[in-house]
């Protein structure tokens, strides 16, 4: 089976826009209509956030969206119900992103089986480290043909980046700075040096830059050094309390992408 993530990067090498959205936010059933709008507006890939009560790598906005989603009653089994026939409407790559504990409670094998059944292409679990992945879970991921996507940060050594590059076959999530999600400043010179350094490593996997990408200017800067970028917090802010998702999503994406 070909993987939609690989196909995407084969088809399109530059300016890939990936959007992160917490499932169950702003309403319990929002995720499917949001996916449709994102696809209609030319977004290349979506990361669907699986809510957790204690998201330690995220800032207040994404934590807030997680809290709302949990209060709305979003659970993993609900999410898989909602995504059951998503592939009849959506053909862009979909990635599930969330913390390890809810996945662990669902059962890794069950989780991967249900994700595969829904047509999910990749998984990002920021607090599942490489050691635990390799020793306990890699074979199960492979059995379900799901790509595990790793993060690298300005603190990650070259040896470790190389190891991550060898271990995955989708893309590498380049965290833009030593920070949690939702940073408000513009991209600094030292960050551009770091992006340049990652680019100079000539990794076999494509790269997407995330954390602090929030508008046209930060998106374009990131795209100079990577195959594209990931926007999360700014999107959550854009749809918070939205009374017209179609209009608000279209406007948000138009403001970022050069048409």
């Amino acid at each position: 089976m070909t993987n939609r993530i690989k196909e995407l990067f084969q088809k399109k090498e530059k300016n890939i826009l990936s959007v992160f959205c917490t499932a169950g936010f702003p309403e319990l059933n929002s995720i499917v209509p949001i996916l449709v709008e994102l696809q209609n507006n030319g977004v290349d890939m979506v990361e669907i956030g699986m809510p957790f009560s204690d998201p330690t790598a995220d800032g207040p906005v994404i934590q807030y969206s997680n809290t709302i989603a949990i209060n709305n009653g979003m659970m993993l089994k609900t999410l898989f119900e909602q995504l059951k026939s998503i592939r009849s409407q959506i053909n862009i790559p979909l990635v599930l992103m969330g913390y390890f504990n809810p996945v662990y409670q669902y059962g890794i094998d069950n989780f991967l089986k249900d994700a595969q059944a829904c047509g999910i292409d990749g998984i990002i679990i920021p607090d599942l480290p490489m050691y635990e992945y390799e020793t306990m879970y890699q074979s199960t991921f492979e059995a379900h043909q799901l790509q595990n996507i790793f993060l690298v940060t300005p603190q990650t050594s070259e040896a470790r980046i190389r190891k991550i590059d060898a271990l995955t076959d989708a893309f590498i999530y380049v965290v833009s700075s030593n920070a949690i999600t939702g940073g408000t400043s513009n991209i600094q010179e030292n960050q551009e040096r770091y992006f340049q350094y990652i680019k100079s490593l000539n990794l076999k996997n494509p790269t997407l830059i995330g954390f602090g990408i929030k508008d046209k200017s930060t998106f374009e800067t990131a795209c100079k050094y990577a195959n594209g970028a990931i926007i999360g917090t700014a999107f959550i802010n854009a749809i918070d309390k939205s009374s017209n998702l179609t209009k608000d999503i279209s406007q948000f994406i138009r403001n970022i992408k050069t048409v």
């Binding site: 330690t56 790598a57 390890f100 920021p126 607090d127 599942l128 480290p129 050691y131 635990e132 790793f150 993060l151 690298v152 940060t153 603190q155 990650t156 050594s157 470790r160 965290v175 030593n178």
Partner: peptide, 9 residues
């Protein structure tokens, strides 16, 4: 040590 990559070093 179920830590995000940012804390790995």
């Amino acid at each position: 040590a179920y830590i995000p990559e940012m804390l790995h070093p």
